[in-house]
Design a protein around this nucleic acid. Structure first.
Lengths: 201, 201
DNA sequence: ACAAATATCGAGTGTGTACTCGAATTTAGA
DNA sequence: TCTAAATTCGAGTACACACTCGATATTTGT
C-alpha cells in the first residue's frame, strides 16, 4: 500500500486540482476584497473562475471554508510579518512592506475590509484576525524590546504600547489610503513615527 | 395658509412620529454595529423596535436611507470633531473623547465596521466617510498648524501628515480595542503620540 | 363629529443566497 | 482497457432579503 490503511481506497486529487483550487482562491480574494465576505457570493466567484457554483463547492465545502483558504493564502503570498532577514532593521522592513503594499491595493482592501467585518457577530474570520494581531503585537514588541536593550529606543517608550500603536497607525493609514490614495503617503507616515521611536545608531 | 402653496394639502407627521423614528434609528444603530450594513436586516431592526417591517419602511423608504439616518444621528449624539471650547487644547479634547468612547463600545463598533465596509463597491455610506475624513484631516491639520505658529510643534513634523496619522492611530487602536479590550489602552496610546508631537508650554 | 391625512400591517413579489442530490463525464492507476 | 475514484454540473431546496400593494386602523384639524 502507498498510504494509510488497506480499508481506505483513496486516490487523492487529480493533476489539475491544485491549479484549480488556486484559481478559485484568487478569484475569491478579489470578490471578498470588492464586496466583503457577506457581500460577496459563491456564484460570482464561480463565474469569475469559469466554473459552476456546484463545482466550486466540490473544492471548498462551504463559504466560510473558502474565506479561511483566502486568508491563509494571503499569508503565504505577502512576505508577512517576521519574514525579514536578521540584518534588516525593523524600520526598513516596515517601510519596504508599506511601499510594496502600494502596488497591490486589492490585497490591502481585502485585509482592511475583512478585518473590520470580522468584528461582527459570528464572523468566520474572527479567530484568524485575533490570532494575527496577537502574533504581530508580540513580534513588534520583541523588536522594540531588543532596540531598547541597545539603548536605541526613545526613553519613556513602552515596547508593548509602541507595538500596538505601530500596527494601529499602519492599519488606519491604509484605510485612508484606500479611500483616497492621493490624500496620504503611507510609507512616509510610518517613517515619521518610527523616526521618532527609534534613535539613530 | 400655514405652509407652501394651496395645492399641497399636507398635515405633516403625527405626534409620536419623532420618537418612533428615533427608536428605529437607535435599533438600527445596534443592528448595523453587530452585523454590519450588509449583514443587518430590516426585519431584525423592526423586531427590535416592535413593529412590522412594512411600518419601518414607512419611516425610512429604503435600507440605505436608514443607514444614512443612523450615521447622521451618530454625529449629533457624539460630541464629535470640532465641538471643543476654544480654551481646551487639542490633546485634552482627543483624550477626553477617547476615554468617553470606552464607555460606548457599540458606537465605536458601528464606526469601525461601517467605515471599512464603506470601502466596498457601491456602498451607501461611502460619501459619508470620505467627507468625514476630509473634514477631520482639515480640522486637525489646522490645529497642528496653529500649534506650530506658537512654536509648540516638534520640529520637522508636517501638520497634514500628523493630522492623517493621528486619525489613523485612533482608528487602528479602536479596532484592536474592539477585538480585545484588555490588549490595549486607547487613550494612553493617543497620549503617547500627542506628547511626542506637541511640546509643553 | 367628520373627513382627510397619516400610520400600521398582512400578504405577496421577485430576487438572491448557500448548499444538496444524483447523474454524467473525465481522469488515473492496474 | 477497464474500473474506480475524482470531477463537473443541471436541477432543485429552503430560506432570507428588500421592497410593493392595498386594505384597515388611528390620529388630527376643523
Amino acid at each position: 500500500m502507498t498510504t494509510s490503511s488497506a480499508s481506505a481506497p483513496k486516490r487523492g486529487p487529480y493533476a489539475k486540482s491544485k491549479q484549480r483550487r488556486e484559481n478559485i482562491v484568487i478569484a475569491a480574494h478579489e470578490v471578498f476584497a470588492e464586496h466583503g465576505y457577506k457581500g460577496g457570493s459563491l456564484q460570482v466567484v464561480a463565474d469569475r473562475v469559469g466554473m459552476s457554483q456546484t463545482s466550486l463547492l466540490h473544492y471548498f465545502p462551504s463559504k466560510s471554508a473558502l474565506l479561511l483558504a483566502v486568508l491563509n493564502w494571503r499569508d503565504t503570498v505577502t512576505g508577512d510579518g517576521g519574514s525579514r532577514s536578521p540584518e534588516e532593521s525593523l524600520a526598513s522592513a516596515v517601510i519596504r512592506q508599506a511601499r510594496f503594499n502600494e502596488t497591490v491595493p486589492g490585497v490591502v482592501e481585502l485585509y482592511t475590509v475583512l478585518c473590520a467585518e470580522s468584528l461582527t457577530a459570528k464572523h468566520p474570520g474572527r479567530d484568524y484576525f485575533t490570532q494575527r494581531y496577537e502574533g504581530l503585537r508580540r513580534s513588534y514588541s520583541r523588536s522594540f524590546t531588543a532596540l531598547a536593550r541597545e539603548g536605541r529606543l526613545r526613553s519613556g517608550v513602552d515596547p508593548e504600547r509602541a507595538a500596538a500603536s505601530l500596527i494601529a497607525l499602519w492599519d488606519g493609514i491604509q484605510t485612508q489610503w484606500l479611500m483616497d490614495p492621493d490624500s496620504v503617503d503611507m510609507a512616509q507616515c510610518l517613517q515619521d513615527y518610527l523616526d521618532f521611536l527609534i534613535l539613530p545608531e
